[in-house]
Structure formats: structure tokens, C-alpha cells
Deep mutational scan, measured.
Amino acid sequence: TRVETATETAWISLVTALHLVLGLSAVLGLLLLRWQFPAHYRRLRHALW
């Protein structure tokens, strides 16, 4: 049971790290898009909202 718990903890930390990385890359990508294509971003936002 001790090994299982350790594996579970490792998986949880791995998944958390993955989610953090994905979230950060998504935010960075959005910022980059907004910085590179302001007109396109505004049009996209206008279409979405």
C-alpha cells in the first residue's frame, strides 16, 4: 500500500505540473497572438462576444 500511495502522489504531481505547463503555454500563446495580431484579435473577440 505504501508503494501504491507513492505512485499515486507521483501521478498527481505529474498531472498538476502538466496542467500548469499547459495553462501557462495557453496564456503565453494568447498574449503572443494579441501582441502580434491586434486587429485580428479584436475582430476575433468581437465575433466571440
Rank of each mutant, 00 (worst) to 15 (best):
R45K: 15
R2C: 10
R34H: 08
I12G: 01
W35S: 15
E8T: 06
L44H: 08
V27C: 12
H46P: 01
H46N: 14
A10Q: 12
Q36I: 15
S13I: 10
L30H: 07
L32G: 04
E4L: 10
A6W: 03
T16M: 07
L22P: 05
R45Y: 13
A6V: 03
W11P: 06
R42V: 07
H40P: 15
V21F: 14
V15Q: 02
A26W: 05
L18F: 10
V21S: 11
Q36F: 06
L14P: 00
Y41C: 15
T9E: 11
A47Q: 07
T7Y: 12
H40G: 14
P38T: 12
H46W: 04
L20C: 12
F37P: 01
H40Q: 14
Y41Q: 01
Y41V: 15
L28P: 03
S13A: 12
W35T: 15
E8Y: 05
L22N: 04
T9V: 12
V15C: 04
Y41L: 09
L44M: 13
H40S: 09
T5F: 02
R45W: 00
T9H: 10
L33H: 00
L32S: 10
S13P: 06
V21H: 00
R45H: 09
L22E: 04
A26F: 12
R45M: 07
H46Q: 13
L33A: 14
T7P: 10
L24S: 04
T1H: 13
G29R: 03
S13D: 06
L28V: 02
R42A: 12
V27Q: 02
L14Y: 05
H19T: 02
Y41W: 13
S13M: 11
L28A: 04
L44V: 13
P38S: 15
L44Y: 03
I12S: 04
Q36M: 15
V27T: 11
A47N: 10
L44C: 15
T16P: 04
G23T: 11
L48D: 08
R2F: 12
L22T: 10
R2A: 12
P38K: 14
V15Y: 01
L22Y: 01
V21M: 10
R42F: 07
L24K: 02
H46A: 05
L18K: 04
A47Y: 11
V27P: 04
F37D: 09
V3W: 02
L24P: 05
R2P: 12
T7K: 14
L31C: 13
L22F: 06
E4A: 11
F37T: 04
Y41S: 11
A47G: 08
L48A: 06
W49T: 08
L31S: 11
L22I: 12
A26H: 00
R2Y: 13
T1K: 12
L44I: 12
A39Q: 14
E8I: 02
Y41G: 08
S25A: 13
S13V: 11
H19V: 00
L24V: 13
W11V: 07
R2L: 13
L28E: 06
L24R: 06
G29A: 14
T1C: 11
V3Q: 01
L33P: 07
A39V: 15
L22S: 10
A39I: 09
R43N: 06
R45E: 05
G29V: 14
H46R: 11
R43H: 00
I12N: 05
W49V: 06
A39G: 15
G23A: 14
T5Y: 04
L18R: 03
W11D: 01
L33Q: 07
A39E: 15
T7E: 05
L44A: 09
A39Y: 10
R43S: 12
T5W: 00
H19K: 03
A6L: 08
W35G: 15
L32A: 11
V3N: 00
A17H: 03
S13C: 11
S13K: 04
A17C: 13
V3C: 02
L20I: 14
R42M: 11
A6H: 07
A17K: 01
I12W: 03
L14K: 01
L32I: 05
S25Y: 04
A6T: 13
L44F: 15
V3P: 00
A26L: 10
L18H: 02
H46C: 09
R42D: 14
T16K: 00
V27A: 10
A39M: 15
A6K: 12
L33K: 03
L18D: 05
L48C: 09
A17L: 12
V3Y: 00
I12E: 01
L44S: 02
H40F: 13
L30K: 00
T9M: 13
V21N: 03
G23Y: 05
W49K: 06
L48F: 05
L14C: 01
L32R: 06
A17N: 02
R2G: 11
G29L: 14
W11M: 06
T9Q: 13
G29Q: 00
I12C: 03
T9R: 14
R2E: 12
S25F: 05
A47I: 08
L30P: 06
L33R: 06
R42W: 15
A26Q: 02
A10R: 10
F37R: 07
R2Q: 14
E4W: 11
E8N: 02
L48H: 05
A17F: 08
L20Q: 04
F37I: 09
L24A: 09
E4R: 10
A10T: 12
Q36W: 15
A47T: 10
H46F: 09
H46K: 09
L20N: 00
A6N: 09
V3K: 02
W35I: 15
L32V: 11
L33W: 06
V21C: 12
L14A: 04
S25P: 02
S25L: 10
R43V: 09
L30Q: 02
L30S: 09
T7L: 12
L28S: 05
R34N: 03
S25N: 10
L14F: 00
F37Q: 00
V15M: 06
L24F: 14
V15L: 10
V21K: 03
T7A: 10
L32K: 04
S25K: 06
V27F: 13
V15R: 01
F37E: 00
H40D: 05
H40L: 09
L33D: 00
V15G: 04
Y41E: 12
A39N: 11
I12A: 08
R42E: 08
R42Q: 13
W49D: 08
L28T: 04
W35F: 15
R43W: 08
H19E: 06
G29F: 13
W11Q: 03
L33E: 05
E8H: 01
Y41H: 07
E4D: 08
W35N: 15
R42P: 06
L30C: 12
A47H: 08
T16C: 12
T5E: 01
H19S: 02
S13R: 07
T5C: 01
A26S: 10
G29I: 11
R34P: 06
T16V: 13
V15I: 11
S25T: 14
W49L: 08
W35M: 15
R43F: 07
V15P: 00
